[in-house]
Design a protein around this nucleic acid. Structure first.
Length: 124
RNA sequence: GGACCAAGCGGGGCAAUCGCGCUAUAUGUUGCCGAAAGGUGUUAUAGCGAGGAAAGUCCGGGCAUCACAGGGCAGGAUAACGGAUAACGUCCGUCUGAGGCGACUCACGGGAAAGUGCAACAGAAAUAUACCGCCCUGAUUGUUAUGCAGUGUGCAGAAGACGAUAAUUUUGUGUCGCCGGACGUAGUUACCUACGUUAAGACCAAAAUUAGUGACUUAAAUCCGAAGAAUUUGUUCUGUGCUCUGCAUAGCAAUCAGGGUAAGGAUGGAAAGGCGAGGUAAGAGCUCACCCACUCCUAUGGUAACAUAGGUUUGCUGUAAACCCUAUUUGAUGCAACACCUUGACCUUGCUUUCUGCAGGGCGGCCCGUCCUUUUACGGUCAUGGUGGCAGAGCCGAAAGGCUUGAACUGCGGGGUGACUCGCAGUGAAGAUAGAUGAUUGCUGCGUUCUUUAACGUACAGAACCCGGCUUACAAGCUUGGUCACACC
RNA sequence: GGAGAUGUACUCAAGUGGUGAAGAGGCGCCCCUGCUAAGGGUGUAGGUCGGGCAACCGGCGCAAGAGUUCAAAUCUCUUCAUCUCCG
């Protein structure tokens, strides 16, 4: 499953400061309404309103190998979540990996994502 | 079997389901974003899809631009010799030095005898000097010994009123009168020699005078007293001892001055070759023998560094990862380079003889050399966004052709001690732009635990224009060659 | 991705080869005060290892590790960490 990525740094800092937050042992999830969602929907081939996703893995986690692997596991867990339950659309979702997420399996991460999204009320 | 040395390999595998990126072909939509250039979006099939270090960015090169790329200066880099390589600070072989019983390992390994600088503290002294010490000379002072002189004095002996001793005077057929002096004669140029004369003078003897007018001894005086004892004064000469003074000589000590010396002196990382003998006032490579180091020369071996042998000069601190010198080498920047496209802003010199020149300007860090001074455009500068560069079953170009294709990799064979090289054959698809290899499950390899149908672990680590090296990180395991000592056969 | 700078105590920091590594803040102790603050005095590699009952003494220690030198915080090399610039 493809994601529309957040590419601008100011959107990340806005999400950290203004967005709703849910923290688990391995993750920190920030959610903010996306004001440009309708405009971006026109560029989408299927004219859908989608969520923009940002995955952050800081240098505290480790070297380049550790960080990209953690990011892949996060992406896999997120795609399996979105396949099973539908999420509300029109949001900026930033998922930051904490140091406990290193070496976890994607099934563990998936369980934590369920808890976080439930807490934020993102499921339809 | 043990302990080691060196060079390498290796970097788990298979399957199922779901999913990601790129390329090609076909298909689909001609939509959306954007000022434009351009970008993005469907599905199917096929192919491909991280490393030995992709890392650090420490060297070298390709490539691109600046002034087509030249010379010099500055700055940087390198540093035994020979070779390999496109090149290198890399690699190979050798030499030298150090370490190891050995296999073998380690070394930025030119020049300190071109010059400058630095060497704290300690130490007498730190790169040439002289503090102590040792030696010589001189001066002063002190002291000791010897000798001489003087003074005083002790002791012993001798002499003396039959007149000692000293001074003066007189006298003598008295003795001497040397050497030297003066004069004369002879020899002789002269010096000189011989002989003679000369008289002062010295000594001796006698006498007289003077002194103390008989001083001293003999004795006398004084005092005490029964006997007796004590004190004071007292001549000359000889010998001998002692004290003091002066002088001379010699020695010793101290101080000062001048000179010689570098043997010795606690320190230090380092003290000016080592040791012995000679030598010297004392000493010193000052000289000699042996040893050590070193310069140069010769011979032999080696392409060379260098090694060995002989001769010869010299006796030199260390430091160049201090400045520096020598040799070699090096233009700068770095794909965020740069090229093209889009949009926009700004800029586009004078004099002159119209040839050149002057002025001005551009121009590698600087200089020389070089370039421009005009054609208002198909120019230049700056900025915006984009594409290319960039990666390949193809791309650019009208075509020829160029790139892909790499100083590439694999295998076999030849050459070389080796790094490496030559020939033939074969192979040839990563290329992202928030950054692609994942998730889940099963089986299995390896290691550990031993709960053997189990549990845990399975390293270091992610391409970003490309290549050659270096450095650093790395789990378990494996291979090859070699060394040493022991045991067994 | 590329280019550069820095690292000294708890903090800020001086120290361009020469021997107990300056200084300030902070901290400990004492004085001052009825008590505190302020002020004054004094101590302080303040870390670690070894020795010693203790006072104290010695070794190591300037991001880490090697090297050059008689001697290294300082010079050289390698590594690590932090920060800055281009973008």
């Amino acid at each position: 499953m493809k994601f529309t990525a957040i590419t601008e740094n100011h959107l990340y800092s806005k999400a950290y400061s203004k967005g709703k937050r849910a923290v688990t042992s391995a993750l920190a999830v920030y959610v903010l309404p996306d004001y440009q969602a309708k405009r971006l929907a026109k560029a989408h081939p299927e004219k859908k309103v989608v969520n923009r996703i940002g995955l952050t893995t800081s240098t505290k986690l480790g070297g380049a190998v550790v960080r990209s692997r953690t990011r892949r596991i996060l992406r896999a867990a997120l795609s399996s979540v979105m396949k099973e339950r539908e999420l509300k659309v029109g949001f900026l979702i930033v998922i930051a990996a904490r140091s406990a997420s290193v070496g976890r399996k994607s099934t563990d991460i998936k369980r934590e994502l369920y808890i976080a999204f439930e807490k934020l009320g993102m499921f339809k």
